[in-house]
Design a protein around this nucleic acid. Structure first.
Lengths: 261, 261
DNA sequence: GCGATTTATGCACGTTTATGCACGATTGGC
DNA sequence: GCCAATCGTGCATAAACGTGCATAAATCGC
């Protein structure tokens, strides 16, 4: 015998390591825990069989829950650019705030990047976002209910709207389908636009993360115009013309991904 | 005799040691308490049977209250047995029905197994389940909202309860923490039990999928007794004694996993 | 009080479990 | 297509395990 940890303790520790670092290496674990690599491999194999991790060559990775969904498919599109926007957006969320997190793949990315121990109240109408936030102990989570709109992936019915009317979020992280200095923010679906308009109107501050492909486009239904209350998060390489137009309309512009790390 | 401690005292001491250090080793305890390892092992076995600790090779660990493990962690436990139960449960869901899907890892498995094109209305209070069902085009999804209980992973607040009062589901797929013919179905948390009791009372039919480890156990808070309205789905190898007791109480029993494939 | 019964303990036995090692197969970078 | 790192499997071993049994103390019934 060479270890001083019980089997179960070792596995628990590996899980924590997995959760904290996002991956583990068999060789490292063996050295650190003072057991042979064979033992570690056995552990990882068993954990993988139990669905606690994913075995890969050299170590293991956390299992990704709910890996497939139309929303999370959209998340998979241009993930690094969305993550960049999300990182900038997360910076605007301060302890003690009440934040509304709207539907949308960028907002899901934001939810995933929130610090686990950040003390905030998050209200959302999107089950997937709620599921992501459930893992964060610091977050007080409130869900808007009612019938779910499949296309949007969120609750935006009259019911959800009535509930939203009771809110006064400090921050509203809005998803948008189009963003144009003149047309303002727009959405594809009428009911979705209605909901967004309502919650946007009730929020102290409006934050919209916009991937460059949406700049200068307008969808069928208006949400709100661009004005002083809005903070637009753009990619660093967003065309200057759009940036200027938004600024002229009064919005605050935040560039994402510039001075990272 | 070699000890100078009464059995009870010894067990209490072991528990304190467990709580203080987070683990105990059989050999250490034997040496320290001046009894044979056999005796210590017996103690630990009995304590484990009473739910006071978790037996592991070499010693014992404190029980992790199910509260401490999040829903997504619970999902990973005994997944194939849950899937077996889930398969049986899914068979009870017929087109046109309105079904309530309660929180719980087994119910999440059920949600994942629902036929994508099955025409049903599902009501749930669990974001993770809602997210899983969003992929199924046939499913009309209604979400119960309000503050989310982190331990349960679902909306069970007064708000959700009020919403639940408006429902009359054809089927209620209930999650349970304990199932005993006498004590009935029980839950760990008061508010959770309250919610379950409410929705169960309003449902035409009650379906409960129960992994064998929950048989004969009772948690702190009662949900409902076992009666004619209940359909219990048990694993094929569930002890006959429990099956008979449930049947005597009037429940219909469904065995999962028998004629599979 | 005194035999009968239960309870707690230790011991001897065979069994199971956790682990490391040897060896051949697989993987992935180059 | 080669090479080293990594992997899985079979095997050996020691520690830990459970069980049946014996013994001694404690408890009970009368």
């Amino acid at each position: 015998m060479s270890s001083d940890l019980l089997l179960r303790e070792r596995k628990t520790l590996i899980q924590e390591r997995l959760k904290a670092k996002g991956r583990v290496l068999a060789a490292d674990l063996a050295a650190e825990l003072n057991v042979s690599e064979d033992t570690i491999r056995r552990d990882l194999r068993e954990m993988a069989a139990a669905g606690l991790c994913e075995r890969v060559y050299g170590g293991a990775l956390p299992v990704v829950p709910a890996a497939h969904s139309s929303l999370s498919e959209r998340v998979a599109m241009a993930p690094e650019r969305k993550a960049m926007l999300a990182r900038a957006a997360v910076g605007l969320i301060k302890p003690g705030m009440t934040v509304f997190l709207d539907a949308g793949s960028t907002n899901l990315a934001i939810a995933q990047l929130i610090e686990p121990d950040l003390q905030v109240t998050v209200v959302t109408n999107t089950p997937l976002i709620a599921a992501a936030l459930m893992e964060k102990p610091g977050v007080d989570l409130i869900l808007l209910g009612g019938p779910l709109n499949r296309a949007v992936g969120a609750a935006i019915s009259a019911r959800a709207q009535r509930d939203a009317e009771l809110l006064r979020p400090d921050l509203c992280l809005l998803g948008t389908c189009g963003a144009d200095a003149e047309a303002g923010l727009t959405a594809i679906y009428f009911e979705d636009a209605e909901f967004k308009r309502l919650i946007a109107a009730r929020s102290r501050r409006l934050v919209v993360a916009i991937t460059s492909d949406k700049l200068g486009t307008a969808a069928a239904h208006a949400i709100v115009g661009i004005d002083e209350r809005a903070v637009l998060i753009l990619e660093a390489d967003a065309p200057a013309a759009h940036r200027a137009a938004f600024q002229a309309a009064g919005a605050e512009i935040l560039l994402a991904g510039g001075p990272e790390r």
